[in-house]
Write a protein that binds this DNA or RNA. Sequence first.
DNA 1: TTGTACGCGTTATCAT
DNA 2: ATGATAACGCGTACAA
Lengths: 389, 389
Amino acid sequence: MTSVLALHNRELLGTRGAGDRARAAATLRDVAGLAGVSVSTVSRVVSGTGYVAADTRRLVESAIEKLGYVPSGAARGLVARRTGMLGLCLPDMAPTADLLAPTRTGSGVEVITDDATAPDGSSWGGLYFGEVIRGAEYAAWQAGYALTVVVARPPQAEARIRDLAGRVDGLIVVAGTLPDKLLEHVTHRLPAVLVAGARPAGGYDHVGVENARGVQALVEHLVRTHGIHDVRYVAGHANSPDDSDRFRGFRAAMHAVALPTPREPALRGDFSRATGRRLARRLVADHRRGGVPLPGALVCVNDETALGFLDVFNAEGIDVPGDVVLTGFDGIDGGRTSSPRLTTVEQPMTDLGRLAVEILRACLADPKLPRQSIHVPVRVLLRESCGTH
Amino acid sequence: MTSVLALHNRELLGTRGAGDRARAAATLRDVAGLAGVSVSTVSRVVSGTGYVAADTRRLVESAIEKLGYVPSGAARGLVARRTGMLGLCLPDMAPTADLLAPTRTGSGVEVITDDATAPDGSSWGGLYFGEVIRGAEYAAWQAGYALTVVVARPPQAEARIRDLAGRVDGLIVVAGTLPDKLLEHVTHRLPAVLVAGARPAGGYDHVGVENARGVQALVEHLVRTHGIHDVRYVAGHANSPDDSDRFRGFRAAMHAVALPTPREPALRGDFSRATGRRLARRLVADHRRGGVPLPGALVCVNDETALGFLDVFNAEGIDVPGDVVLTGFDGIDGGRTSSPRLTTVEQPMTDLGRLAVEILRACLADPKLPRQSIHVPVRVLLRESCGTH
DNA sequence: TTGTACGCGTTATCAT
DNA sequence: ATGATAACGCGTACAA
């Protein structure tokens, strides 16, 4: 365990300054004592309810100022039965290298030449979750809530999620993050909204994405507009509902254009850029050494996977879209800045967070509201990787 | 106000399912009553402390299961004087269009051709804050805390920050987010760590970045290795401490290489890509129409600003680095994927969040700890935009 | 206009 | 091994 005290570049400042942390926090009683009034008067001043004489108010306010009084959220929450916080549970993502590495030491500035190696994958799942957080925080603030973000990672993930559930008024859960049993348990206490994934079985509120329709529209475009017949689907994890929805859309499209409908995805990755690269290398090897022809188009389950393919294709001199057409799903930034830019199905990720908060707010206002499942529409963005331009 | 009920694509599920939200949350007493034991026993089972007979434990556990009991964080926090949460205050950023727009309606999938227009700027301040959140959340989880994220935006920003301060055990404040007075007030109750910006005056804990040294090393490289003499600094907001630190580094470098040291930045923007573009357009116009020669190099206060310049230079056929060398600061993803890639000073943004949490944890463990100010080192990343390759 | 007193749900201390 | 009970800090009816 690296102690903060062991850090480089550390400067000690004076041992006192604004706010003396050693002293216990002031309470209503302390303020009342200093101002010479009762606790209820202070409470009225703080909450702005009820009648308080102007003189008394000023007296109390200066006492509050002097003591640096901040009301205890725990005590307020206890009586109000409301914490003013919403929880957002994200699935465990493998921490990227920058999180695992010890903090760099030495105060000198390193000057290094940055070779064009692409990163292993982006933070927050290619920013997908970053956008969900952003949308949720924005909507939460507007609704008068703060957002507590938690990544359900071991150890003790369950215990700590339960703990969170005791400290917030509502929960947004990215699908697949919590075991069904835990989810069912905590929903006895507070409303929960599932985000992404398939529509849940248990009668939960849900905000989903038009996975199938998006892929279907994309694939139909590839076949009808570009005349590609040999279209292959590159899957993610086998048990991902998003993946199977998208594959369902793929099959629906193939069926609609009267092409052979595969039972299984042609390739299976795991949503990561690294695995996309691995699959691509095998494809290229089979092609170069085994004489296996490249497919007409690769429809990937997500952008990260597609970008992994693109890394390898670009490195190996395989032209996209000339030799093979490549598409993704999500609309992350990396697909907009790659070359060629990636044709993809864009999902409005901030909206997922926003709508989840909206639903939560409605449930909180009226607990008897029936459960609802809404779907946010997607857009197919045609860019260079499918040869449109 | 758009009601959730007005949304498209909505499906109503049954009005009951897992967890009946209409019923009030179960309490310790409810569990005790159902299990036929006292509240103390239930408390012991839940917290895992003290002796409980195996039979009794099973009895209690099944009651907990049946009622979906989740301990009240408010009540726990009240007696424990600890909430297990850390707060992260981010400065108000103008919401991007996706947050302001009403949710798209209609369930059909739009298929559109995406022209290569660059976005007005990225979410979360070019992901800067996203990375800080990521680092902070990771470290917080490891330390046993959850992270509550709040953007201090009007209205009622002050009141709500004070509210937050009453609900968390410690506060991470991105510098400049809170008025000094408020910061001083809340630090009476809990420890706060400032992140980024200049070292604060008031004796706060602080995690900063080697702004000056980073820019200095970069500029010295430009002059010494590339022989550029006409180097100009493009500033951000006039009152930003990060900006003035970086400009200080710029001046130190010019002094070190015996070049004229400017008093003021050559140009002043506001950290945004859009303003970078605006400045660039004026520069190009002066050059083309006024015959003003382009500078040898533009050293921008941050990557977003530099990318704005690059947008215009690329559009106008001005070669980077051939006609003018361009550099940034931050190391955001956009500078790694632009063409040419952007030479920059990379700051380890996740480390800012991580170290802030580390300090908070130390302060929480020992409130008498002296204040400290640490600086994370930076790296100059040489890429194509300065002509290294 | 101000003060008193009770309860919110939990933990901890003490008895049993 | 289990139960009774007193805080914890605040809101709020109700009394003054």
